[in-house]
Design a protein around this nucleic acid. Structure first.
Length: 471
RNA sequence: GGCGGAGUAGCCAAGUGGUAAGGCAGGGGUCUGCAAAACCCUUAUGCGUCGGUUCGAUUCCGACCUCCGCCUCCA
Protein backbone atom coordinates (compact mmCIF):
# COMPACT_ATOMS: atom_id res chain seq x y z
CA UNK A 1 0.00 0.00 0.00
CA UNK A 2 1.18 3.44 -0.81
CA UNK A 3 1.88 6.29 1.52
CA UNK A 4 -0.15 9.38 0.77
CA UNK A 5 0.83 12.75 2.19
CA UNK A 6 -0.35 16.30 1.78
CA UNK A 7 1.91 18.14 -0.64
CA UNK A 8 1.96 21.89 -0.04
CA UNK A 9 3.02 22.30 -3.66
CA UNK A 10 -0.23 20.83 -4.93
CA UNK A 11 -2.42 21.57 -1.92
CA UNK A 12 -3.71 18.06 -1.84
CA UNK A 13 -2.97 14.63 -0.50
CA UNK A 14 -1.08 12.59 -3.05
CA UNK A 15 0.85 9.37 -3.23
CA UNK A 16 4.53 9.67 -2.47
CA UNK A 17 6.48 8.71 -5.58
CA UNK A 18 10.21 8.81 -5.03
CA UNK A 19 12.80 9.56 -7.69
CA UNK A 20 14.83 6.41 -7.18
CA UNK A 21 14.10 4.01 -10.08
CA UNK A 22 14.14 1.15 -7.57
CA UNK A 23 11.69 3.05 -5.37
CA UNK A 24 13.77 2.41 -2.29
CA UNK A 25 16.00 5.35 -1.62
CA UNK A 26 14.44 8.58 -0.36
CA UNK A 27 16.13 11.94 0.04
CA UNK A 28 14.60 13.92 2.88
CA UNK A 29 15.56 17.36 4.10
CA UNK A 30 14.15 19.02 7.16
CA UNK A 31 14.84 22.59 8.15
CA UNK A 32 16.59 22.34 11.49
CA UNK A 33 17.17 24.67 14.40
CA UNK A 34 18.77 28.06 14.59
CA UNK A 35 21.13 27.48 17.47
CA UNK A 36 20.88 30.76 19.29
CA UNK A 37 19.09 29.44 22.40
CA UNK A 38 17.41 26.31 23.76
CA UNK A 39 14.72 25.12 21.39
CA UNK A 40 11.13 25.24 22.65
CA UNK A 41 8.41 22.66 22.60
CA UNK A 42 6.91 24.12 19.44
CA UNK A 43 10.15 23.65 17.57
CA UNK A 44 10.20 20.07 18.72
CA UNK A 45 6.75 19.40 17.41
CA UNK A 46 8.14 19.91 13.94
CA UNK A 47 11.18 17.76 14.57
CA UNK A 48 9.15 14.95 16.10
CA UNK A 49 6.88 15.15 13.07
CA UNK A 50 9.91 14.83 10.80
CA UNK A 51 11.08 11.88 12.88
CA UNK A 52 7.70 10.21 12.43
CA UNK A 53 7.94 10.66 8.67
CA UNK A 54 11.42 9.19 8.62
CA UNK A 55 10.57 6.26 10.86
CA UNK A 56 7.43 5.49 8.91
CA UNK A 57 9.27 5.58 5.60
CA UNK A 58 11.82 3.17 7.04
CA UNK A 59 9.03 0.99 8.39
CA UNK A 60 7.72 0.84 4.84
CA UNK A 61 11.09 -0.33 3.61
CA UNK A 62 12.58 2.86 2.25
CA UNK A 63 16.24 3.66 2.72
CA UNK A 64 16.02 7.25 3.90
CA UNK A 65 18.82 9.73 3.57
CA UNK A 66 17.85 12.27 6.19
CA UNK A 67 19.43 15.71 6.26
CA UNK A 68 18.80 18.42 8.82
CA UNK A 69 20.66 21.69 8.71
CA UNK A 70 22.02 23.56 11.68
CA UNK A 71 21.67 27.29 11.17
CA UNK A 72 24.65 28.65 13.03
CA UNK A 73 24.94 32.13 11.57
CA UNK A 74 22.06 34.55 11.75
CA UNK A 75 21.19 37.97 13.16
CA UNK A 76 20.20 36.85 16.65
CA UNK A 77 23.27 34.65 16.98
CA UNK A 78 25.52 37.47 15.91
CA UNK A 79 23.94 39.82 18.42
CA UNK A 80 24.39 37.33 21.23
CA UNK A 81 27.91 36.43 20.27
CA UNK A 82 28.76 40.07 20.50
CA UNK A 83 27.18 40.61 23.90
CA UNK A 84 28.58 37.33 25.29
CA UNK A 85 32.07 38.07 24.06
CA UNK A 86 32.73 34.57 22.78
CA UNK A 87 33.45 33.17 19.37
CA UNK A 88 30.61 32.20 17.07
CA UNK A 89 31.53 28.53 17.25
CA UNK A 90 31.80 28.49 21.05
CA UNK A 91 28.42 30.14 21.29
CA UNK A 92 26.58 27.91 18.82
CA UNK A 93 28.25 24.68 19.98
CA UNK A 94 26.50 24.95 23.34
CA UNK A 95 23.03 25.12 21.84
CA UNK A 96 23.75 22.65 19.11
CA UNK A 97 24.80 20.11 21.74
CA UNK A 98 21.70 20.89 23.77
CA UNK A 99 19.57 20.44 20.68
CA UNK A 100 21.04 17.02 19.94
CA UNK A 101 20.52 15.99 23.56
CA UNK A 102 16.92 17.12 23.40
CA UNK A 103 16.36 15.22 20.19
CA UNK A 104 17.73 12.07 21.82
CA UNK A 105 15.47 12.67 24.84
CA UNK A 106 12.53 12.83 22.44
CA UNK A 107 13.75 9.63 20.79
CA UNK A 108 14.23 11.26 17.44
CA UNK A 109 16.52 9.25 15.22
CA UNK A 110 19.61 11.28 14.50
CA UNK A 111 19.63 12.54 10.90
CA UNK A 112 22.35 11.08 8.69
CA UNK A 113 23.69 14.54 7.99
CA UNK A 114 23.61 17.66 10.18
CA UNK A 115 25.35 20.22 8.01
CA UNK A 116 26.26 23.57 9.50
CA UNK A 117 25.85 26.69 7.43
CA UNK A 118 29.24 28.03 8.48
CA UNK A 119 30.93 24.92 7.14
CA UNK A 120 29.39 25.31 3.70
CA UNK A 121 30.46 28.82 2.79
CA UNK A 122 32.25 27.61 -0.38
CA UNK A 123 29.13 25.79 -1.60
CA UNK A 124 27.02 28.84 -0.81
CA UNK A 125 29.41 31.13 -2.68
CA UNK A 126 29.38 28.75 -5.62
CA UNK A 127 25.60 28.76 -5.75
CA UNK A 128 25.43 32.54 -5.52
CA UNK A 129 28.03 32.81 -8.29
CA UNK A 130 25.91 30.63 -10.50
CA UNK A 131 22.81 32.69 -9.80
CA UNK A 132 24.74 35.85 -10.68
CA UNK A 133 26.06 34.22 -13.85
CA UNK A 134 22.55 33.24 -14.86
CA UNK A 135 21.42 36.79 -14.31
CA UNK A 136 18.84 36.15 -11.59
CA UNK A 137 20.91 37.80 -8.87
CA UNK A 138 22.67 41.14 -8.63
CA UNK A 139 25.04 42.96 -6.38
CA UNK A 140 23.54 46.11 -4.98
CA UNK A 141 25.32 49.35 -4.18
CA UNK A 142 25.57 48.32 -0.53
CA UNK A 143 27.73 45.36 -1.55
CA UNK A 144 25.11 42.73 -0.74
CA UNK A 145 23.96 40.23 -3.34
CA UNK A 146 20.22 39.85 -3.83
CA UNK A 147 18.04 37.43 -5.68
CA UNK A 148 15.82 39.15 -8.22
CA UNK A 149 12.31 37.82 -8.31
CA UNK A 150 11.57 39.80 -11.45
CA UNK A 151 14.53 38.42 -13.39
CA UNK A 152 13.77 34.95 -12.14
CA UNK A 153 10.24 35.20 -13.49
CA UNK A 154 11.68 36.61 -16.66
CA UNK A 155 13.39 33.27 -17.18
CA UNK A 156 9.99 31.61 -17.26
CA UNK A 157 10.24 30.46 -13.65
CA UNK A 158 7.37 30.70 -11.25
CA UNK A 159 7.64 32.47 -7.92
CA UNK A 160 4.82 31.62 -5.54
CA UNK A 161 4.62 27.86 -5.95
CA UNK A 162 3.79 27.14 -2.35
CA UNK A 163 1.16 29.77 -1.79
CA UNK A 164 -1.03 32.20 -3.67
CA UNK A 165 0.93 35.32 -3.61
CA UNK A 166 0.05 38.72 -4.91
CA UNK A 167 3.51 40.13 -5.41
CA UNK A 168 2.17 43.62 -5.89
CA UNK A 169 0.70 43.54 -2.41
CA UNK A 170 4.07 42.76 -0.87
CA UNK A 171 5.20 45.83 0.87
CA UNK A 172 8.10 46.57 3.13
CA UNK A 173 7.13 45.60 6.63
CA UNK A 174 8.58 46.47 9.96
CA UNK A 175 10.66 43.35 9.90
CA UNK A 176 12.64 44.43 6.88
CA UNK A 177 16.07 45.28 8.12
CA UNK A 178 16.95 48.79 7.11
CA UNK A 179 20.24 47.58 5.70
CA UNK A 180 18.29 46.17 2.80
CA UNK A 181 17.22 49.49 1.38
CA UNK A 182 19.45 48.84 -1.61
CA UNK A 183 17.29 46.12 -3.10
CA UNK A 184 15.77 46.66 -6.53
CA UNK A 185 12.41 45.33 -5.38
CA UNK A 186 10.96 44.69 -1.96
CA UNK A 187 10.37 40.99 -2.67
CA UNK A 188 14.03 40.42 -3.47
CA UNK A 189 15.96 38.68 -0.76
CA UNK A 190 19.58 38.61 0.31
CA UNK A 191 21.89 35.84 -0.84
CA UNK A 192 25.01 37.45 0.53
CA UNK A 193 24.95 40.16 3.13
CA UNK A 194 27.77 42.64 2.98
CA UNK A 195 29.59 43.03 6.24
CA UNK A 196 28.40 45.69 8.63
CA UNK A 197 30.30 46.81 11.73
CA UNK A 198 27.88 44.99 14.04
CA UNK A 199 28.92 41.66 12.52
CA UNK A 200 32.22 41.83 14.37
CA UNK A 201 34.32 38.78 13.59
CA UNK A 202 31.44 36.94 11.98
CA UNK A 203 32.44 37.44 8.37
CA UNK A 204 33.83 35.55 5.41
CA UNK A 205 35.63 36.67 2.28
CA UNK A 206 33.78 36.31 -1.00
CA UNK A 207 34.05 37.51 -4.61
CA UNK A 208 31.68 40.31 -3.53
CA UNK A 209 33.64 41.37 -0.50
CA UNK A 210 33.46 40.47 3.17
CA UNK A 211 30.11 39.32 4.44
CA UNK A 212 27.94 36.39 5.37
CA UNK A 213 25.31 34.24 3.71
CA UNK A 214 21.62 35.05 3.72
CA UNK A 215 19.32 32.67 5.48
CA UNK A 216 17.58 30.86 2.65
CA UNK A 217 20.65 30.12 0.59
CA UNK A 218 22.26 27.75 3.10
CA UNK A 219 19.39 25.29 2.75
CA UNK A 220 19.56 25.32 -1.03
CA UNK A 221 23.32 24.87 -1.08
CA UNK A 222 23.45 22.13 1.55
CA UNK A 223 20.41 20.17 0.45
CA UNK A 224 21.53 20.08 -3.17
CA UNK A 225 25.04 19.11 -2.13
CA UNK A 226 23.90 16.20 0.03
CA UNK A 227 20.76 15.07 -1.78
CA UNK A 228 21.29 16.29 -5.32
CA UNK A 229 19.64 19.19 -7.16
CA UNK A 230 16.32 17.38 -7.17
CA UNK A 231 15.11 15.29 -4.27
CA UNK A 232 12.00 13.78 -2.76
CA UNK A 233 10.89 15.33 0.52
CA UNK A 234 11.40 18.65 2.19
CA UNK A 235 9.89 19.32 5.61
CA UNK A 236 9.56 22.22 7.96
CA UNK A 237 7.23 24.24 10.12
CA UNK A 238 4.32 25.93 8.39
CA UNK A 239 5.75 29.36 9.03
CA UNK A 240 8.63 28.50 6.73
CA UNK A 241 6.38 28.16 3.68
CA UNK A 242 6.89 31.81 2.99
CA UNK A 243 9.36 33.22 2.47
CA UNK A 244 11.92 30.61 3.38
CA UNK A 245 10.82 27.65 1.31
CA UNK A 246 9.52 29.75 -1.53
CA UNK A 247 12.91 31.40 -1.72
CA UNK A 248 14.66 28.08 -1.51
CA UNK A 249 12.75 26.92 -4.56
CA UNK A 250 13.60 30.14 -6.37
CA UNK A 251 17.32 29.88 -5.62
CA UNK A 252 17.57 26.21 -6.37
CA UNK A 253 15.53 26.19 -9.54
CA UNK A 254 17.02 29.54 -10.52
CA UNK A 255 20.40 27.81 -10.58
CA UNK A 256 18.92 25.42 -13.11
CA UNK A 257 20.77 22.34 -11.94
CA UNK A 258 17.76 20.01 -12.00
CA UNK A 259 17.24 17.44 -14.73
CA UNK A 260 14.76 18.62 -17.34
CA UNK A 261 11.23 18.66 -16.00
CA UNK A 262 12.25 17.81 -12.45
CA UNK A 263 11.45 20.19 -9.61
CA UNK A 264 13.88 21.04 -6.82
CA UNK A 265 11.67 19.10 -4.42
CA UNK A 266 8.80 16.76 -5.24
CA UNK A 267 6.91 16.80 -1.97
CA UNK A 268 6.78 19.66 0.50
CA UNK A 269 5.50 18.76 3.95
CA UNK A 270 4.68 21.33 6.59
CA UNK A 271 3.86 20.81 10.23
CA UNK A 272 1.37 23.07 11.98
CA UNK A 273 2.32 25.05 15.05
CA UNK A 274 1.22 24.36 18.53
CA UNK A 275 -0.47 26.50 21.12
CA UNK A 276 0.24 26.12 24.80
CA UNK A 277 -2.72 26.31 27.16
CA UNK A 278 -4.77 27.66 24.28
CA UNK A 279 -2.51 30.59 23.56
CA UNK A 280 0.37 31.28 21.31
CA UNK A 281 3.50 30.55 23.28
CA UNK A 282 5.08 33.63 24.70
CA UNK A 283 7.44 34.30 27.52
CA UNK A 284 5.27 37.07 28.91
CA UNK A 285 2.25 34.76 29.16
CA UNK A 286 4.29 32.21 31.08
CA UNK A 287 3.36 29.45 28.65
CA UNK A 288 6.72 29.29 26.92
CA UNK A 289 8.38 25.94 27.49
CA UNK A 290 11.68 24.60 26.35
CA UNK A 291 12.02 20.84 26.48
CA UNK A 292 14.23 21.32 29.51
CA UNK A 293 11.50 23.23 31.33
CA UNK A 294 9.20 20.23 30.96
CA UNK A 295 11.86 17.75 32.01
CA UNK A 296 12.45 19.87 35.10
CA UNK A 297 8.75 19.49 35.91
CA UNK A 298 9.27 15.75 35.96
CA UNK A 299 7.93 14.73 32.57
CA UNK A 300 9.77 12.17 30.50
CA UNK A 301 10.85 12.58 26.91
CA UNK A 302 8.62 9.79 25.73
CA UNK A 303 5.59 11.33 27.44
CA UNK A 304 6.20 14.60 25.66
CA UNK A 305 6.82 12.74 22.42
CA UNK A 306 3.56 10.85 22.77
CA UNK A 307 1.63 14.04 23.36
CA UNK A 308 3.26 15.74 20.38
CA UNK A 309 2.33 12.73 18.27
CA UNK A 310 -1.22 12.52 19.51
CA UNK A 311 -2.62 14.97 16.99
CA UNK A 312 -2.46 15.26 13.23
CA UNK A 313 0.60 17.15 12.01
CA UNK A 314 -1.36 19.59 9.87
CA UNK A 315 -3.69 20.74 12.62
CA UNK A 316 -2.85 23.33 15.18
CA UNK A 317 -2.36 21.48 18.43
CA UNK A 318 -3.12 22.71 21.89
CA UNK A 319 -0.39 21.51 24.21
CA UNK A 320 -1.47 21.56 27.85
CA UNK A 321 0.06 20.33 31.08
CA UNK A 322 -3.22 18.60 31.86
CA UNK A 323 -2.92 16.57 28.69
CA UNK A 324 0.70 15.84 29.43
CA UNK A 325 -0.46 14.16 32.61
CA UNK A 326 -3.03 12.33 30.53
CA UNK A 327 -0.28 11.23 28.18
CA UNK A 328 1.53 9.69 31.11
CA UNK A 329 -1.55 7.76 32.19
CA UNK A 330 -2.22 6.56 28.67
CA UNK A 331 1.36 5.35 28.28
CA UNK A 332 1.13 3.57 31.63
CA UNK A 333 -1.87 1.70 30.32
CA UNK A 334 0.11 0.68 27.27
CA UNK A 335 3.21 -0.21 29.30
CA UNK A 336 1.23 -2.37 31.71
CA UNK A 337 -0.37 -4.28 28.89
CA UNK A 338 2.95 -4.90 27.13
CA UNK A 339 4.60 -5.92 30.40
CA UNK A 340 1.88 -8.47 31.05
CA UNK A 341 2.21 -9.75 27.51
CA UNK A 342 5.94 -10.18 27.96
CA UNK A 343 5.37 -12.09 31.19
CA UNK A 344 2.87 -14.34 29.48
CA UNK A 345 5.13 -14.93 26.51
CA UNK A 346 8.12 -15.77 28.65
CA UNK A 347 10.84 -17.29 26.48
CA UNK A 348 8.42 -18.04 23.63
CA UNK A 349 8.93 -16.08 20.43
CA UNK A 350 6.57 -15.68 17.52
CA UNK A 351 6.27 -13.67 14.35
CA UNK A 352 4.30 -10.45 14.74
CA UNK A 353 0.54 -10.64 14.75
CA UNK A 354 -0.33 -8.77 11.53
CA UNK A 355 -3.68 -7.42 12.74
CA UNK A 356 -2.34 -4.49 14.73
CA UNK A 357 0.35 -3.71 12.20
CA UNK A 358 -2.14 -3.60 9.36
CA UNK A 359 -4.50 -1.23 11.11
CA UNK A 360 -1.63 1.07 12.00
CA UNK A 361 -0.38 0.95 8.43
CA UNK A 362 -3.81 1.74 7.04
CA UNK A 363 -4.10 4.74 9.35
CA UNK A 364 -0.64 6.14 8.70
CA UNK A 365 -0.71 5.56 4.97
CA UNK A 366 -3.47 8.13 4.73
CA UNK A 367 -1.54 11.30 5.48
CA UNK A 368 -0.26 10.02 8.82
CA UNK A 369 -3.58 9.75 10.59
CA UNK A 370 -2.05 9.22 14.00
CA UNK A 371 -5.35 9.61 15.83
CA UNK A 372 -6.77 6.62 13.97
CA UNK A 373 -3.54 4.75 14.67
CA UNK A 374 -3.69 5.41 18.41
CA UNK A 375 -7.36 4.40 18.42
CA UNK A 376 -6.42 1.10 16.77
CA UNK A 377 -3.64 0.60 19.27
CA UNK A 378 -5.83 1.22 22.29
CA UNK A 379 -8.56 -1.00 20.89
CA UNK A 380 -5.89 -3.67 20.62
CA UNK A 381 -4.81 -3.02 24.22
CA UNK A 382 -8.37 -3.40 25.48
CA UNK A 383 -8.88 -6.67 23.64
CA UNK A 384 -5.63 -8.11 24.93
CA UNK A 385 -6.33 -6.94 28.48
CA UNK A 386 -9.68 -8.66 28.21
CA UNK A 387 -7.98 -11.91 27.22
CA UNK A 388 -5.32 -11.52 29.89
CA UNK A 389 -7.96 -10.93 32.54
CA UNK A 390 -9.98 -13.89 31.27
CA UNK A 391 -6.82 -16.01 31.21
CA UNK A 392 -7.53 -17.03 27.64
CA UNK A 393 -4.24 -15.83 26.22
CA UNK A 394 -1.47 -18.38 25.82
CA UNK A 395 2.24 -17.78 25.42
CA UNK A 396 2.40 -17.90 21.66
CA UNK A 397 -0.24 -15.28 20.82
CA UNK A 398 1.18 -13.18 23.64
CA UNK A 399 4.58 -13.37 21.98
CA UNK A 400 3.03 -12.51 18.61
CA UNK A 401 1.38 -9.50 20.21
CA UNK A 402 4.67 -8.37 21.77
CA UNK A 403 6.39 -8.71 18.40
CA UNK A 404 3.64 -6.67 16.75
CA UNK A 405 3.94 -3.97 19.38
CA UNK A 406 7.70 -3.82 18.96
CA UNK A 407 7.26 -3.36 15.21
CA UNK A 408 4.76 -0.57 15.76
CA UNK A 409 6.93 1.07 18.38
CA UNK A 410 9.75 1.36 15.88
CA UNK A 411 7.46 3.94 14.29
CA UNK A 412 6.16 5.69 17.39
CA UNK A 413 9.07 5.15 19.78
CA UNK A 414 7.07 5.76 22.94
CA UNK A 415 7.38 2.36 24.63
CA UNK A 416 8.90 1.81 28.05
CA UNK A 417 12.33 0.23 28.06
CA UNK A 418 12.01 -3.52 28.61
CA UNK A 419 13.71 -5.41 31.40
CA UNK A 420 14.14 -3.00 34.24
CA UNK A 421 16.29 -3.70 37.26
CA UNK A 422 14.70 -3.77 40.69
CA UNK A 423 17.12 -2.74 43.47
CA UNK A 424 17.71 -5.25 46.26
CA UNK A 425 16.43 -2.76 48.82
CA UNK A 426 13.10 -2.61 47.01
CA UNK A 427 12.85 -6.37 46.73
CA UNK A 428 13.55 -6.67 50.46
CA UNK A 429 10.77 -4.22 51.30
CA UNK A 430 8.41 -6.12 49.04
CA UNK A 431 9.23 -9.36 50.84
CA UNK A 432 8.63 -7.73 54.21
CA UNK A 433 5.23 -6.58 53.00
CA UNK A 434 4.38 -10.07 51.80
CA UNK A 435 5.33 -11.48 55.21
CA UNK A 436 3.15 -8.89 56.93
CA UNK A 437 0.24 -9.73 54.65
CA UNK A 438 0.64 -13.39 55.34
CA UNK A 439 0.52 -12.63 59.05
CA UNK A 440 -2.56 -10.51 58.32
CA UNK A 441 -0.80 -7.48 59.73
CA UNK A 442 -2.40 -5.21 57.15
CA UNK A 443 -1.51 -1.88 58.76
CA UNK A 444 2.15 -2.83 58.53
CA UNK A 445 1.73 -4.16 55.00
CA UNK A 446 0.07 -0.91 53.91
CA UNK A 447 2.80 1.18 55.52
CA UNK A 448 5.39 -0.78 53.56
CA UNK A 449 3.38 -0.25 50.39
CA UNK A 450 3.42 3.49 51.04
CA UNK A 451 7.16 3.34 51.68
CA UNK A 452 7.71 1.65 48.34
CA UNK A 453 5.50 4.17 46.60
CA UNK A 454 7.52 6.98 48.13
CA UNK A 455 10.62 5.34 46.68
CA UNK A 456 8.98 5.31 43.26
CA UNK A 457 7.63 1.78 43.09
CA UNK A 458 3.97 0.81 42.89
CA UNK A 459 2.69 -2.61 43.88
CA UNK A 460 0.10 -4.59 42.02
CA UNK A 461 -1.12 -7.73 43.73
CA UNK A 462 -1.98 -10.45 41.26
CA UNK A 463 -3.09 -14.07 41.64
CA UNK A 464 0.51 -15.00 40.92
CA UNK A 465 1.88 -12.70 43.59
CA UNK A 466 2.83 -9.03 43.72
CA UNK A 467 4.35 -7.14 40.84
CA UNK A 468 6.42 -4.00 41.08
CA UNK A 469 6.41 -1.20 38.59
CA UNK A 470 8.03 2.22 38.59
CA UNK A 471 5.79 5.23 38.76
C1' G B 1 -6.68 44.40 3.59
C1' G B 2 -4.70 39.64 0.88
C1' C B 3 -3.98 34.28 1.23
C1' G B 4 -4.70 29.84 4.07
C1' G B 5 -6.53 26.76 8.19
C1' A B 6 -9.94 25.61 12.16
C1' G B 7 -14.55 25.47 15.31
C1' U B 8 -17.03 17.74 17.55
C1' A B 9 -18.44 15.92 25.02
C1' G B 10 -15.10 18.76 31.31
C1' C B 11 -9.98 18.54 28.40
C1' C B 12 -7.29 16.59 23.91
C1' A B 13 -8.83 14.59 19.36
C1' A B 14 -10.63 11.10 14.79
C1' G B 15 -14.46 10.48 11.41
C1' U B 16 -18.67 9.72 7.95
C1' G B 17 -24.53 11.62 3.03
C1' G B 18 -27.69 7.26 6.93
C1' U B 19 -27.52 8.79 12.43
C1' A B 20 -20.82 10.21 16.52
C1' A B 21 -13.39 6.37 17.03
C1' G B 22 -9.63 6.71 20.73
C1' G B 23 -7.02 8.93 25.11
C1' C B 24 -7.49 11.71 29.76
C1' A B 25 -10.89 13.22 33.52
C1' G B 26 -15.91 11.91 36.01
C1' G B 27 -19.97 8.34 37.86
C1' G B 28 -21.57 3.07 39.01
C1' G B 29 -20.08 -2.09 39.36
C1' U B 30 -16.77 -6.78 39.36
C1' C B 31 -12.11 -8.33 41.41
C1' U B 32 -8.99 -7.19 46.10
C1' G B 33 -7.85 -7.73 53.32
C1' C B 34 -7.77 -2.59 51.49
C1' A B 35 -5.62 -0.74 47.26
C1' A B 36 -3.49 -0.80 42.41
C1' A B 37 -4.06 -2.72 37.65
C1' A B 38 -7.67 -4.86 34.63
C1' C B 39 -12.59 -5.76 32.94
C1' C B 40 -18.02 -4.39 32.48
C1' C B 41 -21.67 -0.37 32.38
C1' U B 42 -22.07 4.91 32.03
C1' U B 43 -20.86 10.35 30.34
C1' A B 44 -22.43 14.72 22.96
C1' U B 45 -30.40 13.01 20.17
C1' G B 46 -25.22 16.14 19.50
C1' C B 47 -20.66 17.86 15.87
C1' G B 48 -19.88 27.26 16.03
C1' U B 49 -24.79 30.03 14.25
C1' C B 50 -28.64 30.61 10.57
C1' G B 51 -30.52 29.10 6.04
C1' G B 52 -30.49 25.71 1.56
C1' U B 53 -30.03 20.85 -1.22
C1' U B 54 -31.62 15.76 0.18
C1' C B 55 -35.93 10.50 2.00
C1' G B 56 -32.00 11.76 5.40
C1' A B 57 -26.35 16.45 6.92
C1' U B 58 -22.21 16.78 11.83
C1' U B 59 -20.57 15.32 6.85
C1' C B 60 -22.55 18.97 0.48
C1' C B 61 -23.78 24.43 -0.72
C1' G B 62 -24.41 29.69 0.94
C1' A B 63 -24.20 33.49 4.55
C1' C B 64 -22.65 34.88 9.26
C1' C B 65 -19.86 34.60 14.08
C1' U B 66 -15.36 33.25 16.55
C1' C B 67 -10.32 31.64 16.75
C1' C B 68 -5.50 30.76 14.56
C1' G B 69 -1.34 31.07 10.95
C1' C B 70 1.41 33.55 6.99
C1' C B 71 1.98 38.34 4.26
C1' U B 72 10.44 39.24 4.35
C1' C B 73 15.07 35.73 8.14
C1' C B 74 9.62 32.85 13.41
C1' A B 75 9.21 25.38 13.90
Amino acid sequence: MALRLFNTLKREIEEIVVRDPDKRRVGMYCCGPTVYDYAHIGNYRTFVFADLVRRYLEFKGYAVNHVMNITDVEDKIIARVKSAGVTLRDYTAKYETAFLEDMATLRCVRPHHLPRATEHIPEIIELISRLLARGVAYQAPDGSVYFSIERYRGCGCRYGQLLNLDLDSLRPGERVSNDEYAKEAVADFALWKARVPEDGAVTWPSPWGEGRPGWHVECSAMSMKLLGPSFDLHLGGEDLIFPHHEDEIAQSEGADLQPAGEPFVRHWLHGAHLLVEGRKMSKSLGNYFTLRDLLAKGYAGREIRYLLLSAHYREAFNFTLENLIGARTALNRLDDCVTKLRELAGPVTASPDPTLIESIRTALDEDLNVSAAWAALFDWVRELNRQIAGQTLSAEPAAAAVAAWEAVDRIFAVGAPAGLEIPAEITALLEQRQAARKARDFPKADTLRDTLLAKGWAIEDTPKGPRLKPR
